[in-house]
């Protein structure tokens, strides 16, 4: 008899019981092209108490300054998490943060800053952009928006084998970016445990090819899909997590707001997401995809993450999770994990 968690995955359209960790005797699941793990991964936690625009611009500039990031003359693609109309400001990456990031990269000399997203649930982009407030920010900043669900695509062979997908059509806007910036919200996720920089890349998978809500990825295995997409995206990357207001409980849509008051910055999406998990008092080693990528893609272990700006302990908060993920919480929610 399957256990509840296993059943929940299948009920969501997922393949049952995908074990992501390699077992003894199994062939390695990634090719040399997927190996990007640095010796150490800097991650900066910067306070941001509200979505005040001036405050956010200062915070983003401060966070970017913690890294050797030269964007002069480059085309930067920002990929926020835009899912659903949300008057509480809890589901989506806040539009004010997107606007502040556009401004910060422009001040840094970027040739162009594009905002790109392929919403996974709603197909009515005109409504979604307008109701979320992102359309107004795009108008004010003059930034171009690319609908990744309908962008021109190229078929790319996957660099890892955590699913049976083998290849994916991916948007040219993303594949041709000089710098791709994943901008997720700090949230729990009822199928994946957490949704951060890496899971945010489901939004680059074109809905026109794979449907809504990108159901092919669920069938192929959620954790494995997260890994395969991240492993194949071989463009310069950066990540900025909106943790000003996060979501706990039944995320990524129906959970409750949780104030944290931070932005998290870093080039290594694995280290950024491991830090995000720790901020939520979730053990990243118990999130299957974060544990599985540590040997090749990035750093999950805190001994290889170089904390910059504020210490993690100052902002660590106890996020509620649904019953099926009770086992991923750190108990008690203090100390190093």
């Amino acid at each position: 008899m399957p256990d509840r968690r296993e059943f929940l995955r299948v009920a969501a359209g997922a393949t049952a019981g995908v074990a992501l960790a390699c077992r003894r005797g199994e062939p390695q699941r990634w090719t040399p092209a997927a190996v990007r793990k640095p010796a150490r991964s800097p991650v900066a936690i910067v306070p941001a108490a509200s979505y005040d625009e001036a405050l956010l611009l200062d915070a983003v500039r401060s966070g970017l300054a913690a890294f050797d990031l030269d964007v002069r003359g480059r085309r930067v693609v920002l990929k926020p998490n835009l899912v659903e109309f949300d008057p509480r400001g809890v589901i989506n990456t806040h539009p004010a943060l997107v606007a502040a990031t556009i401004e910060a990269f422009r001040l840094g000399g970027a040739r162009e800053v594009v905002v790109a997203e392929g919403p996974g649930h709603r197909r009515d982009n005109e409504y979604l952009l307008s109701a979320s407030g992102l359309a107004a920010q795009l108008r004010d900043t003059g930034a171009r928006f690319v609908d990744l669900n309908h962008d021109a695509v190229r078929k790319v062979e996957l660099a890892s084998r955590f699913t049976d997908l083998r290849a994916l059509y991916l948007p040219q806007t993303v594949l041709d970016a000089d710098l791709f910036v994943s901008m997720p919200k700090l949230k729990t996720h009822h199928w994946a445990g957490v949704t951060l920089s890496m899971k945010n890349l489901f939004g680059i998978v074109p809905g026109a090819v794979y449907g809504w809500p990108k159901n092919v990825l669920h069938w192929a295995g959620l954790g494995g899909s997260i890994i395969d997409i991240n492993a194949v995206l071989d463009v310069p990357r950066f990540n900025i997590v909106d943790g000003v207001l996060g979501m706990e409980g039944n995320g990524p849509i129906q959970g409750e707001a949780k104030e944290v008051g931070v932005l998290v910055f870093g080039a290594d999406p694995v280290a950024v997401d491991a830090t995000g998990a720790r901020l939520m008092s979730i053990d990243p080693w118990k999130i299957d995809y974060l544990a599985a990528v540590d040997p090749f893609l990035g750093n999950t272990g805190d001994d290889r993450i170089e904390q910059r700006a504020e210490p993690l302990s100052r902002f660590r908060t106890d996020f509620a999770v649904i019953d099926s993920f009770a086992g991923v919480k750190v108990t008690p929610p203090v100390g190093g994990v």
């Binding site: 059943f7 929940l8 009920a11 969501a12 359209g13 197909r123 090819v209 794979y210 449907g211 809504w212 159901n215 092919v216 669920h218 069938w219």
Partner: peptide
Amino acid sequence: RAVDLDPDLVGWPWVEGTFSWVE
């Protein structure tokens, strides 16, 4: 039940080999 639906009903998927959706 995680999702509220009749598991015996079959419609059309977005992509072959996946779940049936409303659209």
